[in-house]
Simulated scan of single mutants.
Amino acid sequence: MPETPAVPTGRRRVSPGAILDAFFFVLAGFASVWLAVLLATESLGLGWGLLWFAVLFWALLAYLVLPRLHRILTRLYVPDYFIGRTRTSDGLLGDPVNLAVIGNAEQVHAALAAAGWTRADDVTLASSWRIVTATVRRRSYLQAPVSPLLLFDRVQDFAYQQEVANNPAKRHHVRFWRCPDGWMLPGGHRVDWVAAGTFDRAVGLSLFTLQVTHKIDEHTDIERDHIVASIRRAVPQTRLVLIRDFATGYHSRNGGGDNIQTDGDLPVIDLRGMPVAGAPSGAGVPGAGVPGAGVPGDGGAVIELTGLS
C-alpha cells in the first residue's frame, strides 16, 4: 500500500527583512494619519487662512494618507494573481480586463493607428501639467497620458485613445499589457496581449482617495465592442474569437469608485494575418503559420464570430 505523503506542518518562514519592511510600511501609514490630524487641529483658529489649510489638508489626505491606507489594507484582501481586473497604484481593483490580442507589437500598433487611435504619452511631469491645462482650457490634447494601472505586477506597456469633441476630459482609451512568457488565460487559452478599455466621460474626484481623476462610463462592454469594431473595420484580415462567459457578468466599482458592469465575455483579436511593413506576416508571433496555434479552440464556450451584431 503506497504511503501517504506527509503534510507539512511548519509555518511559512518570514525573513527579518520582510518583517522590518512591513513594520515601516504600517508605521508610515499611521504617521500619515497623524500628520493629517495634526494639520486639521492646528488650522482651527486661522480664520481666512483656514481656506489654504483646507486645500493643504485635502492634498495631504488625497495624495498621502488615503493611498497609504489603501496600500496597507489591499495587501490583506486583494489577490495577487490574475482575476480579470487591473489594480491601481494604491492597490485598489481597477478597470476590468475586457480584450485580448494575438500578434506582435508592430501589428498591434499598426492596427490601432489604422483604426484611428492615437498612442498616449507616458506620464511625466510635463505631460501631466499639459493635460491639466488642456482640460481646464478645453484644448485638444490627442496624446494625453492615461493613469497607470497594474497587471502582472507592472504598469501597462502602452495605451491608445480617441479624444471626443477636442476635449481631453472625454475620450475612448485602452491600455495594453504584454503577457508573460508561457502565461495563459484561465481555461488554457494562449494570447500575446491583454487589454482594458473604458470611456472617460468627465473629470472628478475619486470616491476612494479623493484624488482628481477621470470618471469612466459604467457600460464597459460598449467601449470594448467599440475598440473591436474599429479595428475590424480598419483591418479586414482580423480574425475574431469570442470567449463567452470568460468571467461571470458583474456590477462593481473601479479604483476611482466609478460603477462598472460587464457581461463577462472576452473578445480575442487575432492580428497575425495583418502584414507589417518590413516584416513577414506573423513574424515574431509564437505559433504563427500553424492553423489555430495560440487561438482558443472551437469547443465549449468559445464561439468564432464573423462580425459584431
Rank of each mutant, 00 (worst) to 15 (best):
A159H: 07
Y160I: 00
Y160S: 04
Q162H: 15
V164G: 06
N166G: 05
N167V: 10
N167A: 09
P168A: 02
P168W: 11
R171T: 10
H172D: 14
R175V: 11
R175K: 15
F176G: 01
W177G: 07
W177R: 03
R178S: 10
C179Q: 00
C179D: 03
P180E: 01
P180Y: 03
D181R: 11
G182M: 00
G187R: 06
G187A: 04
D192M: 02
W193P: 06
A196H: 09
G197S: 11
G197H: 11
T198F: 12
T198Q: 08
T198I: 08
F199V: 14
F199Q: 15
D200H: 11
A202Y: 13
A202E: 14
V203G: 01
G204L: 06
S206H: 06
L207E: 14
L207T: 13
T209Q: 00
Q211F: 12
T213Y: 03
K215Y: 14
I216A: 08
I216L: 09
D217S: 13
E218D: 10
H219P: 05
T220Y: 01
T220R: 06
D221G: 06
A229C: 10
S230W: 03
I231K: 02
R233I: 07
A234S: 10
Q237L: 05
T238L: 11
R239V: 11
L240M: 13
D245I: 01
F246I: 13
G249Y: 07
G249V: 01
Y250K: 15
H251S: 06
S252N: 13
S252L: 07
N254Y: 01
N254G: 07
G256D: 14
G256W: 04
N259V: 14
Q261N: 14
Q261C: 15
T262Q: 15
G264E: 05
G264S: 10
L266D: 07
L266H: 04
P267F: 10
D270N: 06
L271R: 05
R272Q: 09
R272L: 00
G273P: 06
M274A: 05
M274G: 13
V276K: 01
A277G: 13
A277S: 12
A277T: 10
S281A: 13
S281L: 11
G284F: 03
V285R: 05
V285E: 03
A288S: 12
A288N: 08
G289M: 06
G289H: 02
G292D: 02
